[in-house]
Computed example of a mutant assay.
Amino acid sequence: MTDLAHNLEAVQQRIAAAARNAGRDPQSVALLAVSKTFPAQDVRAAHVAGQRAFGENYVQESVEKIDALADLRASLEWHFIGPLQSNKTRPVAERFDWVHSVDRLKIAQRLSEQRPASMAPLNVCLQINVSGEASKSGVAPQEAARIAHEIAALPNLRLRGLMSIPEPETTLEAQRAPHRVLRELFDALRASGLALDTLSMGMSADLEAAVLEGATIVRIGTAVFGARAYSH
């Protein structure tokens, strides 16, 4: 077994254990392998090991990677999870299956306008700034309902749920708190009539806390691919 395959198996075991602790079906939590800064050959190796969904943060890098792996396109699912500028929405609208980081209505509108008619609706999540950090992207929780309903009405998009990147914490209870805020907001939006099914929350350091609070997608990079050497 390769190191990458071993890492994927170890993460899946963590997800399954967390799900069982929460009284949930492990199959209700999907692993999104965050491949940002790693080369296309690493994604190809992860694909050989059985992984299908990959997360990217940088538009130019991801476009090059997706094009380099065009032969696997039918069996790969690409998720854009990084900050998205309005002048860079077109390549994302044209190549990705999901965008987790919709943090304002303008971005959603541009993705809707630029999604090719020949493609399925683009799955999107509304990013929520659950920690209230000025440096973090995301909609304030009190604004989420209005913006979510506006996004849900756009053509060529399917609003699937919510995403967050909370401030790092070191204890399980402290990690659970912001994820609980997101889940409670998710429940409220569902109660208001939105057909949401996705909570994108939890990373390598806090996936257990996220799963305990209801995550349906955990975004795992370091625990799968190893430490990153950033050049961006």
Rank of each mutant, 00 (worst) to 15 (best):
D187T: 12
D187Y: 08
D187M: 08
D187P: 09
A188M: 04
A188C: 08
A188L: 05
L189K: 01
L189R: 01
L189H: 03
L189Y: 04
L189I: 01
L189G: 03
R190V: 15
R190T: 15
R190G: 15
R190D: 14
R190H: 14
A191L: 05
A191H: 09
A191T: 10
A191K: 09
A191D: 12
A191N: 09
A191W: 07
S192P: 08
S192F: 06
S192Y: 07
G193R: 00
G193T: 09
G193F: 05
L194R: 06
L194I: 06
L194S: 00
A195G: 11
A195H: 14
A195Y: 11
L196N: 07
L196Y: 08
L196V: 08
D197M: 08
D197W: 11
D197E: 15
D197N: 13
D197A: 07
T198W: 02
T198A: 04
T198K: 07
L199P: 13
L199T: 11
L199S: 11
L199E: 11
L199H: 12
L199V: 12
L199M: 11
S200L: 00
S200M: 00
S200V: 03
M201S: 04
M201R: 06
G202T: 05
G202S: 07
G202E: 08
G202P: 06
M203I: 12
M203S: 12
M203K: 07
S204R: 09
S204P: 12
S204H: 08
S204L: 08
S204A: 07
A205D: 15
A205S: 15
A205C: 10
A205Y: 14
A205K: 14
D206W: 14
D206M: 13
D206H: 15
D206E: 15
L207Q: 13
L207V: 13
L207K: 13
L207R: 11
E208Q: 10
E208G: 10
E208W: 10
E208P: 10
E208S: 11
E208L: 07
A209E: 07
A209M: 05
A209L: 06
A209G: 05
A209H: 09
A209V: 08
A209K: 04
A209F: 08
A210T: 01
A210E: 01
V211C: 07
L212A: 09
L212P: 11
L212W: 13
L212Y: 12
L212N: 06
L212F: 10
E213I: 04
G214F: 01
G214C: 02
G214I: 04
G214K: 03
A215I: 00
A215T: 02
A215K: 02
A215V: 00
A215R: 04
T216C: 03
T216H: 05
T216E: 02
T216S: 06
T216L: 00
